[in-house]
């Protein structure tokens, strides 16, 4: 991993891997559980809209140099996941601009788009193809992915609906980290699996972020010790606003002060 000063030196040399300029994301969610023709027709005469505007991100700007491992902290509902999805190109910005240089891979909270009727192997292929890899690239990686999940090959040939949630997230994690992305986006997905797999996941993350100094990582986690251990940069979001951007130690300290969480408690909450 690059040290903080090495990272600062890079700023002048390389253009940012991710640059977010004045990003606002606003979307409307329906309060009706489902939008149906019937409810639309009922509302028609009354000009009443059962939607709520959600200002998930408000005027957020920052840039991330190649090689940075940026931790993102914030309370629930701070806009962390929205920011991840916007950077991955899934959610459109309402205002502002995002530029990402390099290939992106995501490991988001909900797992990969897996179809339960298909086997693990088929899902790995399908997920990789959707992410834009070629069939050959996936086949080349398949062994490494299968190996990393630690699941028997006959489990991988079974339909995924028979998987336990732990096995499920092992596959998701394995796929995301083997895409060889330039920019890796990880959203609270590291808490998956049993103790043994957690250890392997942590080791792999370390390999991705610490040993390879060119990869850019965005890491959302509630484990503050992880951020201090793994990141060389951090931002803190609160209710859609960027509160602080700086060194991980400083950011987490301010965040904890704000949240009135004692440091000893924070490490007890540790869950990577």
């Amino acid at each position: 991993m690059l040290s903080v000063s090495e990272l600062q030196a890079r700023r002048g040399v390389y253009e940012p891997a991710i640059s977010v300029e004045n990003l606002s994301v606003t979307y409307r969610v329906a309060i009706d559980r489902k939008q149906t023709l019937r409810s639309a027709a009922k509302r028609l005469g009354r000009r009443q809209r059962l939607v709520k505007e959600v200002h998930a991100l408000k005027d957020v700007s920052f840039s991330v140099s190649p090689g940075a491992v940026m931790g993102i902290v914030g309370a629930n509902g701070a806009g962390k996941s929205t920011l991840m999805r916007a950077v991955a190109g899934i959610l459109p910005p309402s205002k502002g601009r995002i530029v990402v240089n390099g290939r992106v891979s995501t490991l988001l909270a909900l797992g990969v788009g897996f179809n339960g009727a298909l086997s693990g192997r088929e899902n790995i292929l399908l997920g990789g193809l959707a992410a834009g890899l070629s069939r050959r690239q996936i086949e080349q990686r398949f062994e490494a992915i299968a190996d990393f999940t630690g699941l028997d090959i006959d489990i991988l040939e079974r339909p995924m609906r028979t998987y336990s949630s732990g096995q499920y997230s092992r596959v998701a994690f394995a796929v995301a980290v083997h895409m060889e992305p330039d920019v890796l986006i990880v959203d609270e997905a590291l808490s998956a699996g049993d103790a043994k797999f957690k250890k392997r996941a942590e080791a792999k993350m370390r390999e991705l972020v610490v040993e390879d100094s060119s990869r850019t990582v965005l890491l959302v986690t509630h484990g503050l010790a992880t951020i201090q251990k793994m990141c060389n940069e951090a931002i803190w979001l609160h209710e859609g606003r960027l509160m602080k951007h700086g060194q991980p130690g400083h950011v987490t300290r301010d965040y904890m002060k704000f949240m009135a969480v004692q440091e000893s408690e924070a490490t007890a909450l540790e869950d990577i």
Binding site: P93, I98, V99, G102
Partner: peptide, 14 residues
């Protein structure tokens, strides 16, 4: 950009 980065560039605008 670092040599081993893929030449992809994504721009997301409203």
């Amino acid at each position: 950009r670092p040599d081993d980065y893929s030449p992809e560039r994504h721009v997301y605008e409203p």
